[in-house]
Amino acid sequence: MDEQQHDAAVAGFLEKLKGRGLRLTAQREVLFRIIAENLGIPSTVQDIWGKTRALDPSIGIATVYRTVNLLAEMGMVNVIYLNEGQFRLEMPEQKLHISAFCRHCGSLFPLGGEQEKQETLEQWMVETGVELLPQSIAIAGLCEKCREDLKDENASPADQGPFGRPGHCPRRRRFRGGTPG
């Protein structure tokens, strides 16, 4: 995202907030700037919080959570949840965005055919009496490169965990033949 797009995103956030009668605080403006800088980049609330604290140490992590949720509820950003607290924020270009991501390396793959998928989901929602809200859906899988890399038994996703990091579950055991241990 270039500087002009970044400034336009921040201005859009502020304008929508004002249009809803919500307060425009200095903290929110700092957060909007950091969020706009992180659009399209895998992040965590802690990442955004760390960057905002460098500019305004009075911003708490709860404020970051509330602001991300507020922007998502207002349809101003789509939150694509990846793994272990990671997400990716994107400006909504359409009501529905569906992508796939590799649970091992974190790469994101657009699936295409958005309009047809949106029409199908909207029809399902109409049948239930619910309106489809703007959102992003990320479907986990393993990309071709990681599947190839993981053919080695010692490099399985169960051992390595998401994004190639060690798994977080201390109780996880892999059955390697013989009796489970």
Rank of each mutant, 00 (worst) to 15 (best):
F32N: 09
F32Y: 11
R33D: 09
R33E: 15
I34N: 00
I34Q: 08
I35L: 10
A36L: 03
A36C: 04
A36K: 00
A36V: 01
E37W: 01
N38W: 06
N38Q: 10
N38L: 12
L39P: 00
L39V: 04
L39N: 00
G40Q: 14
G40A: 03
G40V: 09
I41N: 12
I41M: 11
P42T: 07
S43T: 06
S43R: 06
S43H: 02
T44F: 01
T44R: 14
T44Y: 02
V45N: 12
V45I: 11
Q46R: 15
D47A: 13
D47Y: 15
D47F: 10
D47C: 15
D47V: 13
I48N: 02
I48G: 01
I48W: 01
W49H: 13
W49P: 02
G50D: 07
G50Q: 05
K51F: 06
K51M: 10
K51H: 11
K51R: 10
T52H: 08
T52W: 05
R53S: 13
R53V: 15
R53L: 09
A54P: 06
L55Y: 06
L55S: 12
D56W: 08
D56L: 13
S58I: 02
S58R: 11
S58C: 03
I59M: 07
I59V: 15
G60L: 13
G60I: 05
I61V: 05
I61R: 12
I61K: 14
A62G: 06
A62C: 12
T63V: 01
T63L: 09
T63F: 01
V64Q: 07
V64I: 15
V64D: 08
V64F: 13
V64L: 14
Y65I: 01
Y65L: 06
Y65K: 10
R66H: 15
R66A: 15
T67G: 00
T67K: 03
T67R: 07
T67P: 00
V68R: 07
V68Q: 05
V68I: 10
N69C: 07
N69I: 03
